[in-house]
Amino acid sequence: MRRLIALLVACLLLAACATRPPGPAVVLPALRLAPSALGHDLAVQQRLVFRFGSHVRELDALLEVDASDVRLAVQAMGRTGVRLQWDGKELVEQRAAWLPSAVRGERVLDDVQFSLWPADAIRAVLPAGWELVERDGFRELRRNGQVWLQREQVDATTLRVRNGVDDYELMIESVAGGVHDP
């Protein structure tokens, strides 16, 4: 019996070591755009489908933007996982204990701003070597010609974000208020 347990533990350790190769040595630039740079107020309820490898998680989000603040609450099964408030200078984050540490408030804010803020506002804050390309409902953040972040306008209410650095996909469906390409 001890040999069986030792064999199982060894298999689990090997599986843990072999699960994912190290990610690319690329860090996406932080956008941290002013709420007013969106150019209009926004209040929308959204359905999020997050895919990371074989894991799929469905979440609900409430997003509000006005000239002074971005407010976002993300819920799973009726429980709030994270609340974010961004005033253009400080990001305040309230997290539930059950929320995985991989869900970072800074990345969530950047995904929202990359998806919804005007391209010119994004281009203005990109560091050297990064470019934003936009065409036919697609938006791509590139470095040295390589696409690292992509947003696709799937239809009038749905956006798809693909993150090549952190290797995930996020579908954002607006339930009320619609999503539009600013």
Rank of each mutant, 00 (worst) to 15 (best):
residue 68 S to W: 03
residue 49 V to E: 14
residue 35 P to R: 09
residue 61 A to E: 08
residue 95 R to L: 09
residue 39 G to T: 09
residue 18 A to F: 01
residue 90 E to S: 08
residue 105 G to L: 06
residue 103 V to E: 02
residue 65 V to Q: 07
residue 135 R to D: 11
residue 114 F to D: 01
residue 120 D to F: 02
residue 15 A to C: 15
residue 129 G to R: 06
residue 106 E to T: 14
residue 35 P to S: 03
residue 105 G to A: 07
residue 130 W to A: 02
residue 132 L to I: 12
residue 110 D to G: 02
residue 96 A to H: 14
residue 119 A to H: 04
residue 89 K to A: 13
residue 37 A to C: 00
residue 78 G to S: 06
residue 37 A to T: 14
residue 107 R to E: 12
residue 34 A to G: 08
residue 74 V to A: 01
residue 11 C to K: 00
residue 74 V to E: 00
residue 131 E to W: 00
residue 83 R to S: 10
residue 134 E to H: 01
residue 85 Q to I: 07
residue 90 E to H: 15
residue 81 G to V: 04
residue 10 A to Q: 05
residue 58 E to L: 02
residue 46 Q to N: 07
residue 127 P to D: 05
residue 126 L to E: 05
residue 100 P to T: 01
residue 80 T to Q: 14
residue 134 E to C: 08
residue 110 D to T: 01
residue 77 M to D: 13
residue 87 D to Q: 02
residue 120 D to K: 08
residue 73 A to I: 08
residue 94 Q to N: 07
residue 112 V to W: 01
residue 10 A to R: 03
residue 124 A to T: 11
residue 27 V to H: 07
residue 129 G to N: 03
residue 38 L to K: 08
residue 117 W to P: 06
residue 117 W to E: 03
residue 87 D to T: 01
residue 130 W to D: 05
residue 83 R to K: 13
residue 22 P to M: 03
residue 55 H to A: 11
residue 58 E to Y: 02
residue 18 A to G: 14
residue 87 D to V: 03
residue 99 L to Q: 08
residue 89 K to E: 13
residue 62 L to E: 13
residue 75 Q to F: 09
residue 134 E to F: 06
residue 32 R to Q: 12
residue 132 L to R: 07
residue 53 G to V: 00
residue 66 D to K: 10
residue 135 R to M: 09
residue 107 R to H: 12
residue 89 K to I: 00
residue 73 A to D: 11
residue 132 L to Y: 06
residue 89 K to D: 13
residue 64 E to Q: 15
residue 74 V to M: 05
residue 74 V to H: 03
residue 112 V to H: 06
residue 130 W to K: 03
residue 105 G to V: 07
residue 132 L to F: 06
residue 24 P to S: 14
residue 34 A to L: 13
residue 114 F to Y: 03
residue 6 A to K: 04
residue 129 G to V: 07
residue 118 P to E: 03
residue 88 G to S: 04
residue 109 L to E: 07
residue 19 T to M: 11
residue 110 D to Q: 02
residue 52 F to S: 07
residue 50 F to Q: 01
residue 76 A to N: 06
